[in-house]
Simulated scan of single mutants.
Amino acid sequence: MSIRFAPTAKRAVAGLAIAGAAVMASGCGAILSNLQEASQRAEDQGSDSVPSEPTTPAEEPVEESTPPEPTEEDVAAFDIAVGDCLNDESIQGEVSEVPTTDCSGPHDSEVYASTISMESEWPGEQAMTDEADQFCLEEFESFIGVPYEQSAYDFSYYTPTQTAFEQFDRDIYCVVYSPGEQTTGTLSGAAS
């Protein structure tokens, strides 16, 4: 299956900055709470001064936290790179952005090779598909560790549209995936 895409501007992601601000604010709240408790104890003891030794709140049981789920970010299709993991199972036709995610979590595919088209003029959609198919097939064995015909995995590719090609965006990206299911971690050297 050939997947085509066109260039687009990147979208900014502000979620991490907001999460960081929330963590900073929660830490400040704990310090303020401890100071207020110390001041209250000093008043209860009939003293106007705050104790010179810091007091610590009673130890609370430490809850084991589960690791955060990998975040997903839409990036410009021409900004993906070898090693990126994607959640792109539902993508068809022309796209300008691709959802990337951390490879340590479940994902649909992984970019395993890329090249720039050898054509100097738009060769037509079928010729572009043929070039991508040939290149990705040649690169498959060196990434997975077994020939394509012996592998449980399949591959696909992202190719430029005519408009993108004529604007000198001529990259071809090969992606490997496990048909019908997500994978976790890289498939490099999977040998299956």
Rank of each mutant, 00 (worst) to 15 (best):
S156Y: 05
G145A: 10
S120L: 11
Q167T: 05
F165W: 01
Y148E: 12
P160D: 01
E138Q: 15
W122C: 11
D154W: 08
F135Y: 14
S109W: 06
M128E: 00
E149Y: 12
E166A: 11
E138V: 13
S151R: 03
F165N: 03
F165I: 01
Q167E: 09
A113P: 05
I116P: 04
S151F: 13
Y112T: 06
D133F: 15
F165L: 01
E131M: 10
E166M: 08
S142D: 13
S117R: 00
S109G: 10
E141V: 15
V111P: 11
C136Y: 12
S109I: 14
E166H: 09
T163H: 06
D130E: 12
M118T: 04
G145K: 11
P123M: 07
P160R: 00
E166D: 14
A152S: 05
W122R: 13
S114T: 03
S151D: 06
E119Q: 04
A113R: 06
D130Q: 11
Y157R: 02
F168E: 15
Y148V: 07
T115Q: 13
A132P: 10
E166Y: 10
M128P: 00
Q150K: 15
Q162T: 01
L137I: 10
I144C: 13
S114D: 13
M128L: 01
E125K: 02
M128I: 00
T161K: 01
E121I: 11
S156C: 09
T163E: 04
F135V: 02
S142Q: 08
A127Y: 02
D108Y: 02
D108K: 03
Q167G: 05
F155I: 02
E119K: 02
E119V: 01
M128Q: 00
Y158E: 05
E166R: 09
A132R: 01
E141H: 14
E121P: 03
H107V: 12
P106D: 13
Q162I: 00
F155L: 10
